[in-house]
Design a protein around this nucleic acid. Structure first.
Lengths: 240, 240
DNA sequence: CTCCTCTGGGTACGGTGTACGCGGTCGATG
DNA sequence: CATCGACCGCGTACACCGTACCCAGAGGAG
């Protein structure tokens, strides 16, 4: 595959139709990679292992994809296809954005490796395009387009941050093989030492008063999401 | 260094004081690693290269740090020390949060590798602790602790998301060695094809009407930040 | 002084992404 | 239809990674 020259994978056509018929396809390779990444993490989805999953050699994949980074971009867009949204916004922006947020969280939890990807660049993948179309359209309720973009950054920022921390927490549990309780107990001495100094009154207060940390991830997320949507509502012109 | 058993690097003391005097220190190693990561990216900060920077062998570092992941956690907390904040919130929550947000952005731009780190787990590093103390304290203006946490997730989510995309955009420019204009021109055909289908009215509208994309990163960030702070203001009980 | 822990450092192992080159296969062209 | 060259799958090779394990020697504790 031509190396280094391309702008983004989306401008590189899959094939140009001379020579023998390809035995695989980008979609096939992408699906295999996603399967492995879901099971064993993104770093396990190495070119060799993906190739092995397909029954071929590592270097064969480079006939289909310029580099592993490009393949990862394909993976990221591929899983977005799972998110099924109405063809166009329903007119109820709050319901639409809730749908996007909840679906995004579910997808990130299903594909935890999404959390480790680089930030959002231009949304050039077809499925991402569809998603931003829907989201922007949902908030297209008489507010300047710049404000729509900002509000969506705020919402998506909240979603991604909270889900990232959920994922990280779960990974921590899995990695150490401990129950949450045991993990708490392990870090207990350090935290107790921290609190003992009295230099962290807010941390103390959070541990004493906050209810969020005792809720399930789902509850915590929905609760915060409503707050964020309230904030957005306050920034929109009065509806109707 | 004892492997695998520890909960977090913060509960592993640096030394226990028998035998010969250590030639290096965690701080020294961390600083060298940060220097390299700033210059050439996180993946360039390999154990071998960090060790070389200090004039020693790769395996010597493991006397100070259990693993590279732990070293990265040390790095992340280390750079937070650059953020100088007042000892305690000033009483003007909006000014305080602006300070945090602007400083966070500046730090991420200085240390672009922060964008690739795993999500926020429990804030156990000393500098991160200080930061969350300050932020929570700033918003401690008569609203339930849970709401404070949510609003901060929203604010930090916005900041991180926007800065991530800034970093990714800049990395793209650097990687391809192209000017932004040339890059635009390169992806032009693809985008034009997209718009030609008429299936993306919102994308079209953004390209036509949005002013945000034409502002500098700093302007774009400040502009959005004010919007987010407005949202937070709306969620607080009336002040005074 | 002896002992025993801890030091810095080397070697080795099993992985990684991918540059390059090979022989064989076929679609397009003469 | 014959031929040609682009494209196929794939193996080898290289430089690099994190780190398990081992060793000789330094130096505080008894």
């Amino acid at each position: 595959m031509a190396g280094g020259e391309h702008v983004s994978i989306w401008s590189v056509p899959e094939r140009q139709g001379r020579g023998p018929r390809p035995a695989y396809s980008r979609a096939q390779i992408t699906e295999a990679a996603v399967r492995i990444a879901d099971a064993d993490g993104l770093e396990a989805a190495s070119m060799r292992r993906i190739a092995a999953e397909l029954g071929t050699g590592a270097m064969s994949l480079y006939r289909y994809v310029p580099s592993r980074d490009d393949l990862i971009e394909l993976m990221a867009d591929h899983v977005l296809a799972e998110m099924d949204l109405p063809a166009r916004p329903t007119g109820d922006w709050r319901a639409d954005l809730t749908l996007v947020a909840v679906n995004t969280r579910a997808m990130w939890l299903r594909h935890a490796w999404l959390a480790g990807l680089p930030g959002p660049r231009a949304p050039l993948g077809p499925h991402r395009l569809r998603l931003v179309e829907f989201a922007i359209g949902a908030l297209d309720v008489g507010v300047p387009v710049d404000d729509v973009l900002t509000l969506l950054d705020m919402l998506n920022g909240y979603v991604e941050r909270v889900v990232r921390s959920e994922i990280e927490w779960e990974r921590e549990n899995r990695r150490s093989g401990m129950t949450p309780e045991l993990l708490m107990a392990r870090s207990g001495p350090y935290v107790r030492e921290l609190l003992g100094t009295g230099a962290h009154p807010m941390l103390e207060r959070v541990i004493r008063d906050a209810r969020l940390p005792h809720m399930t991830g789902e509850e915590r997320f929905r609760h915060g999401l409503e707050r964020v949507l309230d904030c957005i509502a306050g920034a929109l012109p009065p509806q109707r």
